[in-house]
Every structure is written in structure tokens, then in C-alpha cells.
């Protein structure tokens, strides 16, 4: 059974004329890792807010269609019930950090405190989460003394610690260093293999191709393409619509015109590019 089931979802923010999401139909299996790509303004963050219940519960506006996660219907739930199943890491970690806590450790415990997890279990879960994302050494620092990328890891960890059934990540690595980015993708992959369902907005095509099960390409609030990363990310439709594409793909596309790329299928990852360009 699908953990996420969106049927004909259309959503309009208050005070705007055009819907941010238009007629979205989307089913996601338990343990699936889905990446969402698209230009700025395509509706990626709004899709995250919809899955996380912020739209319409927090933002208000007009929602139609049906949004089901883990057997619950969004329109029949309250936000505090909803967050027990769904966790969202914001695009800007600064907007997520509570401001109420002096250390990273306390910040990450904040969500658990709010749902009344016993103290000993809370400590264990926070320590495990810190180790998982590699920030144990930041535990005693103030969340505000951290660099952008470090703050982003804290924001991610504070959601992971809640062990949501559905993990929604809005550009979780945008401020991270390149190898740190790869590590985070690999942690998320592991969580998905452990049964957590993941929806992640990202621009980094190489890592999407390597780690995600499926890609959804959004344009003007609608799904333009969806399918396996290798197919969607090399599609000419994406290139023609101004989506970001991996340098391996764009360079192979140009090489093909010059007769330097012989294969039918274009590469997204380094290995695929090496394979195709090898003499």
C-alpha cells in the first residue's frame, strides 16, 4: 500500500491568483526515496508544505483534492496529529531553529520533549541521531554559532530524531560542502532502506541519480515528468525547460552532436560517463 497518496491536489495560497500546485496525482510506496526537481517557483516547496500539512493547516489558502499519508487524511487531521507521521526540514535552517535552546543537543531534543518521550530514551535517540549525521562534536555549541552548512545538519538531525514515517526535505544540502552533501545523501538512502519514506527537493542531479529511486520534475505547479532518475534526468524535455542538468549529461549531449558520444542513452553519473566515453 502506498504511504503517500495525493489525488487531484490543487492548492492556492491566500492572496495569490494562480494555484501553486495544480492537479497533482502522486503515490509513494513505503521506503521509497523520491527526489523532486524543478526551477525556482515550480511548486517544490509548496509540495513539501502540503505533505507536511503546513498547507493548508498553517498557511490557510484553498486546498482541493485528497492528501493521505500513513492512512490519515490531511483535511480530517490537525497539524499536531500530522507531525507525528511527517517531518519537514526547511530550506533555510535559520527559519527552523527554535531560538529557545542554548545547545545543539537541546535543540535536537526539542521535538522529542514536545511529544513527551522519557528522558533516558530521549538522550539515547539524540546521541544516535547526532552520530548518524556526523555532528556529535557540535553537541555543546550554540545553534547560532554554527556555519550555514552545520546549521543545516542540525536542522536535518532534529527531524531525523523524530523518526517520522515520511521525511520531507527541502534542499537539505544547499549550504553543505560537496563531500558532506554526498554523506547526507548516503544517510538518507540508509534511512529509506530502513523503511522511512523520503521526499527530497534537490538541484544536485549527480547525487539524485545515484541515490534516489524516482524523480518527479515539477513545472508551474504540475508534474511534467516522472520516472527513474536515469530516464528523467537525461530527458531532452528537462533541458528544454530550463531544469538544472548534470555536467555529464550536458557535455555528453554536446559530444553526441560531434560524434564523440556513441551511446543512445546519456549519462547522469560519473560511472555512466566514464563507461560511455571510454575508448
Amino acid at each position: 500500500m502506498a504511504l503517500v497518496n495525493l489525488q487531484n491536489v490543487t492548492y492556492k495560497y491566500p492572496l495569490t491568483k494562480t494555484p501553486a500546485l495544480q492537479n497533482i496525482n502522486l503515490q509513494i510506496k513505503e521506503g521509497e526515496f523520491v527526489a523532486v526537481v524543478g526551477a525556482n517557483g515550480a511548486g517544490k516547496s509548496t509540495l513539501c508544505y502540503t505533505l507536511a500539512g503546513f498547507a493548508p493547516h498553517f498557511f490557510k489558502g484553498e486546498m482541493s483534492g485528497s492528501i493521505e499519508v500513513a492512512g490519515k487524511e490531511s483535511s480530517k487531521s490537525t497539524l499536531d496529529e500530522w507531525v507525528l507521521n511527517v517531518g519537514l526540514a526547511f530550506q533555510n535552517p535559520f527559519n527552523q531553529i527554535s531560538g529557545a535552546k542554548y545547545t545543539v543537543f537541546e535543540e535536537i531534543a526539542f521535538g522529542l520533549e514536545n511529544i513527551g518521550v522519557p528522558r533516558d530514551e530521549m538522550k539515547d535517540r539524540v546521541n544516535d541521531a547526532l552520530a548518524l549525521t556526523g555532528i556529535t562534536d557540535l553537541a555543546d555549541r550554540s545553534p547560532y554559532s554554527l556555519s550555514g552548512g552545520q546549521q543545516q545538519r542540525v536542522a536535518l538531525t532534529s527531524i531525523l530524531v523524530m523518526q517520522p514515517k515520511l521525511l520531507v526535505l527541502d534542499e537539505p544540502t544547499s549550504q553543505m560542502d560537496p563531500i558532506g552533501t554526498r554523506e547526507v545523501f548516503s544517510v538518507i538512502r540508509k534511512m529509506a532502506e530502513g523503511g522511512m519514506t523520503v521526499v527530497m527537493v534537490e538541484h544536485k542531479m549527480e547525487w539524485i541519480a545515484q541515490f534516489a529511486d524516482r524523480v518527479i520534475a515539477l513545472k508551474d505547479g504540475s508534474i511534467l515528468l516522472e520516472g527513474k532518475p536515469g530516464e528523467v534526468l537525461t530527458s531532452d524535455v528537462l533541458a528544454e525547460n530550463g531544469f538544472g542538468i548534470s555536467r555529464y549529461t550536458s557535455t555528453a549531449r554536446e559530444a553526441k552532436k560531434q560524434g564523440l558520444w556513441k551511446k543512445e542513452k546519456l549519462p547522469v553519473t560519473l560511472d555512466e560517463a566514464v563507461e560511455g566515453f571510454k575508448k
Binding site: 558532506g180 548534470s246 557535455t251 559530444a255 566514464v274
Partner: peptide, 29 residues
Amino acid sequence: QTYVDPPQLTRLGKRLGLKETVRNQDEFL
């Protein structure tokens, strides 16, 4: 050591055994 990967095409050039370090599409092709 500082968590930085070389650019995609630089890595590709290395893997293919190109002599020069390439930085962009023109140099690679």
C-alpha cells in the same frame, strides 16, 4: 581533506586518463 570534490568534468577527465586537468565542457571535448 576539506570535503571538496573536483568539478564533475575534472573528475571525468581524470578517470578517462586525460593528460591535462580540464575544467569545463570546451576543455573536456
